[in-house]
Nucleic acid binder design. Structure first.
Lengths: 183, 183
DNA sequence: CTTCTCGGTTCATTCACCGAACCGATGATG
DNA sequence: CATCATCGGTTCGGTGAATGAACCGAGAAG
């Protein structure tokens, strides 16, 4: 693997974490899952990742207990990949990386994160300045920032445009005959 | 590089950050630099990384302004790689990854982190519970945890054993120019 | 029956990682 | 002086992962 996972000699929880989520694409898959992406094709379109690599990552993350594969319709059998608590627990690490990327690499913020209960923007470490508490991932509202393209090409990016709750499944527009999603 | 050039399509500071620090070994190099490792050979010994890859990463990180190459002696000419502010700013992300690794993947903590000024252990997000303030990286004391091997093989691991301040350069035992090989 | 979507798998090519060997500058040793 | 050792790399052949395109099978629509 280009980003192999054998850090065997490293006695360190950081190295252990990187063995699991340090491979190429893996953290972006988890980021998308936090944003509400759940289906193979949506990951594929949004990430531009090779199909084989995506299948490999989804399987590995499921085996590690970070994603859970669950059947969401029977008539054509379809599965979706949903974050487990273990996966959701990566939110602080991903947020810290995002903060670093924006602050140190420059540019306008792409997305901002707010406490849904009180409408306050989150502090860099995920706490709500108004409430003084750590905000659960499910209580985080994601809103587009000034750096975000307001009219992206792919339907997944378009579905991720509006203000939305983290982890809430995205709703891509109907795009074909073989498409039937129960309410 | 790690994620191709399609960060144009990945409008996201997380993806931008991973472009810079997402390659294999890169975050472990930065971790070691935070712990006080500065010299090529010390990174090499401690990480068990191929020499060519290490040279590549050090050069890339220097080009990105995360490390700074500086001459620390003239004869023989020797350089060391020191974290810049931009590199130090990765501490929260690395800490969040380490917290996740320990909490979700199990095991005893390898290292614990304390506020040097008041001797209180840091909260998961790097604040000092006693002082209520965010602790600067230079004011963090690192102490060995129960999961750490008390008698590691390589000299760098041994130098990193004791309680020590983050960023303080490590002192490997004198094996200066052409030391006679001991039994 | 044909066509379409979804969720993969297969395959050839490219590329990064790996480990070992090698190299040049410098200094120590005998 | 010749020899040897350290430090900080570079070079090179082999391997394995990433990549993009093609292919595939189940199911549903027309």
């Amino acid at each position: 693997m280009a980003l192999g996972k054998d850090y065997a000699t490293q006695e360190c929880s950081i190295a252990r974490a990187l063995e699991v989520v340090g491979e190429r694409w893996t953290l972006l898959v988890i980021r998308d899952a936090l944003y509400g992406v759940r289906r193979y094709n949506d990951f594929l379109v949004h990430l531009g990742i090779p199909r084989a690599v995506l299948a490999n990552r989804l399987q590995a993350l499921t085996a590690e207990g970070i994603l859970e594969k669950r059947r969401y319709q029977e008539s054509p059998p379809r599965d979706e990949y949903v974050l487990t608590e273990r996966g959701i627990a990566l939110w602080p690490a991903l947020r810290a990386l995002g903060i670093w990327g924006r602050e140190q690499l420059g540019g306008e913020p792409m997305r901002t994160f707010w406490h849904a209960d009180c409408g306050t923007e989150l502090s860099p470490y995920g706490a709500c300045p108004a409430c003084g508490t750590l905000v659960a991932v499910r209580d985080v509202d994601m809103r587009p920032g000034p750096g975000l393209d307001p009219d992206p090409a792919d339907p997944v990016s378009r579905a991720l445009l509006g203000p939305r709750r983290l982890l809430q499944p995205i709703e891509t527009e109907q795009q074909g005959p073989a498409r039937r999603r129960p309410a």
